[in-house]
Design a protein around this nucleic acid. Structure first.
Lengths: 159, 159
DNA sequence: GACGAATAATTCGCTAGCGAAATACTATTC
DNA sequence: GAATAGTATTTCGCTAGCGAATTATTCGTC
């Protein structure tokens, strides 16, 4: 992948540094995704399933959220989230509960099976991620996290 | 998105720092993707089309590569790359040329139209990316790029 | 020259996700 | 109470990409 960047050195009609950052991040995120899918495959769970359960667990008991909240947090369209929830519900990992005060709303709740699946998967997935991030020292990890956060703060403010 | 991370503080059964890094990178890469699709939409070109043309241009005249080379550089499966090239060929952005010395191979070559499309799109896409990365100082950008590269070097060495 | 292993690209069947529209519902105004 | 605008979720039609298998070709061995 750095060969790609090397080809442009000195002659690219754009900011090479920005190009390098974006390209490396894209590449790494694909690697994270591949590592996680591989690690989770032995449990028969997909990473998008895990991520969704993860966000429900993060909310604490009673582990509920609306499809819109989940869609926003996971950067997925409403239609995409509906499809995800269809899959999770079909696998008995979540249940949909119609709102009583506002029937347009749906509460997505983690099932016992979903919580157990999350528990089993969480460690495997953490190992897969740490394998890559762990090459950095803790101090470097803090630096990286802060820089990413600075860019994130910007994207949040322009929405 | 940081609300998600805040929910775990102090009680997560995994390394919060690693989680923060991976989550932020995933979020940012999605934002990059959205910004680029939006910017390129006015030219009627998709980001995956641009990325593919970009890798061909990077090789210099005569702007050729095999499907396997492109698949590896862009982290796409062979089947996925075949589909991409189908789309690019249908839009007259590339042409496929059967190898003469090894007829299993195909040479993917940029067309004039493809080069023109890359030229038009390149600036728009660079602006979209810089909008986010540009919030960091040049020194911070170098730091970020180096840290990302350190992780990348590791993933390359474990393939 | 025949055969088997390996390689390159494509095909096949499938899926997660998208944008836009539709449906169901709520809130506000008259 | 009726009408309208807005919201939440789902439906619809489509697509980029995947894994596995297939097809065509090359290379090495006998």
């Amino acid at each position: 992948m750095d060969r790609h960047l090397a080809r442009w050195r000195g002659k690219a009609p754009f900011d090479e540094r920005v190009e390098a950052i974006v390209t490396r991040m894209q590449f790494l995120v694909k690697r994270f995704a591949q590592a996680k899918e591989t690690a989770l495959a032995e449990l028969g769970i997909r990473d998008f399933e895990f991520e969704t359960l993860h966000h429900l667990v993060a909310r604490g008991d009673p582990w509920r959220a609306t499809p819109s909240e989940l869609a926003a947090e996971l950067v997925v369209s409403p239609a995409g989230m509906t499809g995800r929830l269809d899959t999770l519900e079909r696998n008995d990992l979540v249940r949909r509960i119609r709102g009583t005060q506002d029937r347009r709303r749906v509460d997505v709740e983690l099932t016992d099976k979903g919580l157990a699946a999350w528990t089993s998967a969480m460690h495997l997935r953490a190992v897969a991620e740490k394998t890559i991030v762990g090459t950095l020292s803790p101090a470097d990890q803090d630096t990286l996290s802060a820089l990413l956060n600075q860019m994130l703060a910007h994207t949040e403010s322009t929405l």
